[in-house]
Design a protein around this nucleic acid. Structure first.
Length: 286
DNA sequence: GGCCAGGCGCGTA
DNA sequence: TACGCGCATGGC
């Protein structure tokens, strides 16, 4: 039956951990659950003992879009079993039970991470929120809930001036986001077709965009396209690898890259998210 | 007040 | 290929 709510039985899925782990930036916690936007839909999610309950602003006949976003059919046990069996990885998995990777829309993910460089996660959330409020389409929400906006389209941001973007606190990232949106609007890259290409080709295409280096490209490859071997190397993961795997003589970046590519296996990106979150929370930057 | 934040682009060696 | 630096802005 078509309803504006549904229940999804799922085990070992920590919604709060997943939505607040710095892979997506539009989820807000409230007493009623987690409110956010997926595509052009307002959604509220709530953790329940046997799974996840979802609420939308209008009846839904087919919930596949949400199952896909949350990756409810992912084989987490199999993924965890593929991780290397070493103390840092075991500690990370133990500290982040139920952490999952989402499958985001590529443009929103790309634009969000262009905004992310040398920003803390709370500030990225603020910037993305301002962009949506200023340039996004207003969405229908249930009575009594906060207003919500879709993520701005490529065309809308391509048409925005640098000053308008700076007003959303982008700082020096404003010309990057503007330039990337304009190249995409001009058809330089077809984001919808990158998933069909090998990882290296997709990455090479992404880094031709202004403000997109290997790290941001890898975030998009991992969080939006599901290239699970992509391993974003940010300041936290560098710190994690140096302290957890090479405490006596921390290697520099080139060697850490080679290590990360060979050590963590086919789901290295998944392992990276566990190490990232473990480093940021359980260890509190030690 | 100084340090740092899910980096990138560019100049230099 | 591998550094070092400047770049806005705000949390702690």
């Amino acid at each position: 039956m078509t309803q504006p709510h549904a229940a999804f039985p799922v085990k070992n899925y920590d919604l709060a951990l997943t939505l607040a782990s710095g892979q997506a930036f539009r989820w807000r916690r409230s007493a009623e659950g987690w409110a956010g936007v997926i595509g052009s839909r307002w959604v509220r999610l709530r953790q329940e003992p046997d799974g996840i309950r979802a609420e939308t602003s209008a009846p839904e006949a087919d919930w596949q879009w949400l199952r896909h976003y949350l990756q409810l059919d992912a084989d987490l046990d199999g993924i965890l079993a593929s991780f290397p069996d070493d103390p840092p990885m075991r500690d990370s998995v133990a500290a982040c039970r139920g952490l999952r990777l989402l499958r985001q829309e590529p443009w929103e993910c790309l634009a969000s991470f262009i905004c992310s460089s040398t920003k803390q996660i709370v500030q990225i959330q603020q910037i993305v929120g301002l962009l949506c409020r200023r340039f996004g389409e207003t969405l229908a929400v249930p009575l009594g809930t906060e207003p919500a906006w879709a993520f701005p389209t490529v065309e809308r941001l391509a048409g925005a001036s640098e000053a308008e973007l700076r007003a959303c606190k982008l700082g020096f990232r404003a010309p990057y986001l503007s330039g990337a949106a304009r190249k995409l609007a001009a058809g330089d890259i077809d984001l919808a077709r990158l998933a069909e290409r090998p990882l290296e080709e997709a990455r090479a295409a992404l880094v031709t965009l202004p403000g997109v280096g290997v790290k941001i490209a890898d975030c998009v490859l991992l969080f939006a396209y599901g290239f699970h071997e992509a391993f974003p190397m940010d300041v936290w993961i560098i710190k994690a690898l140096q302290q957890l795997y090479f405490p006596k003589r921390p290697p520099k970046l080139p060697r850490l890259r080679r290590f990360s590519q060979t050590h963590f296996g086919p789901y290295g990106g998944y392992a990276q998210q566990y190490l990232f979150h473990y480093m940021r929370t359980a260890r509190k930057g030690r």
